[in-house]
Design a protein around this nucleic acid. Sequence first.
DNA 1: AGTTTGACTGGAG
DNA 2: CCTCCAGCCAAAC
Length: 113
Amino acid sequence: MKDYADKMTPQQARQFRDDVLNIVGQIPPGRVTTYGIIAAWAGWPSHSRMVGRTLRYTPGAEQLPCHRVVNMAGRTAPGWSQQRPLLQAEGVSFKPSGHVDMQQHLWQPGEVK
DNA sequence: AGTTTGACTGGAG
DNA sequence: CCTCCAGCCAAAC
C-alpha cells in the first residue's frame, strides 16, 4: 500500500512547473523568495532543487524575475554573477557577507501587498 | 536499471 | 563567514 506520494506523474510535473513559473512571476520588485518556499507553495515541500532545475532549464524563464529567487541563506545562484547587480538595481540590500538581507526583503506567495 | 548530478536545506566543524 | 556532509529527489547519463 503506497502511503507516500509516488514520484511525480508527468502531469504533476507539468503542474509543478507551471505553478513555479507562475509564482516567480508574482514576486514584487525589490523583494526575494526562496526555492523551498516556492516548492512548498506549489504543493511539493521537499522539491526545492526541482525549482532551481526548472528556472535553469526551462526556456522562457528568462522573461520572469527569476533573479528574485535566492536560497535560504540569501545567497545568489552559483554561476550567475549578474543576479546580484539586478537585485541591487531594484533596491535590494546585501549584507557585507554578500548575502541578501532576507529579514528585510523576503517575500512569500499570498502576502498582502 | 544503476549511477551521477545539481540555481536546495540544515546542521556540523 | 567559510567548507564539508548527509538527506533530498527528478532528470540526465
